[in-house]
Amino acid sequence: MLKVLLISSDLPDQALLGQLLDAGYRLSLLRLEQLAKQTTIADQSLLVGCFTNEDELAQLTENLGSQEPLWWGWNQSNYPHLTLKAYEAGARHVITNDANASQIIQNLNALHVSQLHQQTTRGREQQYPRGAMVHLQADQALLIETGILSLQVNHPDGSNVLLGLFGPNQLVCGHPHDGCAIYLQAHTPISAQLLPWQRVLSEPSLIERLRMRLQLMEAWASCQAHPYLDQRVLGILNLLAEQFGKQHNQGLLIDVRITHEQLASAVGSTRATISRIIRDLRTRSMLDSHFSGSNERFWLPIVPHYHHTHPFA
C-alpha cells in the first residue's frame, strides 16, 4: 500500500489519521519546520503538505521545489486562493478543508493504482472508481475504454468550471503542473489505457482521436461563449448528446447524468438559474427529461447538428 508522509506544523486530525491507517496506508509525520533538514525523501512516499496560510505554503513549496517529489497540498484554511497557489507551486492535487475522509481515501487509492501502473508496463488497463482523481504526467495520455471522465478547473474564488466530459474511445492528455488548476475526475467508473506520449505520436488512429478531441473542445468553448444563457445550456447539451446520445422515440436521449449544478459550472451560472432556464426550455418544447434524481436524463427533441463525434466510436 502507498506510504504517505504528512507534513504539517500541527498534528493533523486524529480521526482522519485513524481512518487512513484502517484503510491500510503507512503513515509518517514530519513537522513543517523539519522539512528543510530532509536531504532525501523515499521515492514511494506521497507527500501531503498541510498549510493554513501563505507563509506555511511558501515554506512548504520552497523546500519541496528542489526535490520535485510527487506531492499533494492540503488547504486547511477557508481561503480558496491558497488552493490555486498550491497548484501553481506544483501540487498534483489539493485537498480542500471540506473534504471528508472517504473522498481523501478514494483519491489516494486512485493515485496508488496510477503509481503502480507507472512502475510496470505502460499501456495496461487502468481502473478508476467514480469520483476518483485521475493523475496523468505531462507525457502521458489516457485512452478511455468504458466510462466517462470530466475535465474541470478550480478558480481562485473557489468556483469550479466544467470544461468537458469524455467517453469511450476518446483520448485525454496529461496537463503540465502549472497555474491552470486543471484536473481530471472520474464522472463514472472508468476503464482506460494509460499510454506514453511517444506511442500516441506513432499511431495514426490515436492522433486522429486527439484531433477529434481538439475539435470537440473548440466547440465546447464556442458554446460557453454564447451571449445568451439558454443557448449556452442548449449548446452544451447538444454536444453531450452528440457524444453520449441514444435514439429515442421523442428525440435524442443524453445517456449521461449531469446535474443542474454541473450545467451551471459549465456555462458560468448558478444552479437556481439553470433550473429556471431548464423549465423555460421545457415550456418551449426544446428540452425534456426522463426519470428523476440520480437517474434523471435529458433528451432533445431536435437532433444536434454538430459533427464532432469520434469516428472510432
Score class of each variant (00 low, 15 high):
I144M: 13
H135T: 07
G147D: 05
Q152V: 05
G174L: 01
G164D: 06
G167M: 07
D139R: 13
T146F: 14
L143N: 09
M133C: 14
L149F: 05
G158I: 05
H155G: 08
E145Q: 05
L149C: 10
A138D: 06
D139P: 07
T146Y: 13
A141N: 12
E145G: 08
L165K: 04
N169S: 11
N169D: 11
G164C: 03
P168E: 04
G174W: 03
L165W: 01
Q170G: 09
L171Q: 03
G147A: 09
H135G: 02
V134F: 00
F166K: 02
L142C: 02
G158A: 03
L136F: 05
V161H: 14
A138R: 08
C173Y: 12
A132S: 14
C173H: 05
S150D: 06
V134N: 08
L163R: 02
G158T: 07
G131E: 03
L151Q: 01
A141H: 13
S150K: 05
A132D: 13
L171E: 06
N160Y: 01
M133K: 12
L142N: 07
Q170P: 02
E145R: 13
N160C: 10
S159M: 12
G167P: 02
V172M: 15
I148M: 01
G174P: 11
Q137F: 02
E145S: 10
L151P: 04
L149T: 12
H135I: 09
F166P: 01
N169L: 09
H135A: 15
M133R: 15
L162A: 12
G164S: 02
M133Q: 15
C173P: 02
Q152M: 12
H175T: 05
V172Y: 04
V172C: 06
P168Y: 00
G174D: 01
L165S: 01
L171N: 03
A141L: 11
N160K: 14
L142M: 07
A141E: 13
V161D: 14
S150F: 00
V172A: 04
D157I: 00
G147W: 05
L162Y: 01
G147I: 04
L165A: 02
A138E: 15
L165Q: 10
H155Q: 12
T146A: 11
Q137H: 07
L151F: 04
G174F: 12
I148K: 07
A138N: 13
L136R: 00
P156Q: 03
V161E: 15
V153P: 06
M133W: 14
I148N: 11
M133S: 15
H175K: 03
Q140D: 08
L162M: 08
L165V: 01
Q170T: 13
G164Q: 09
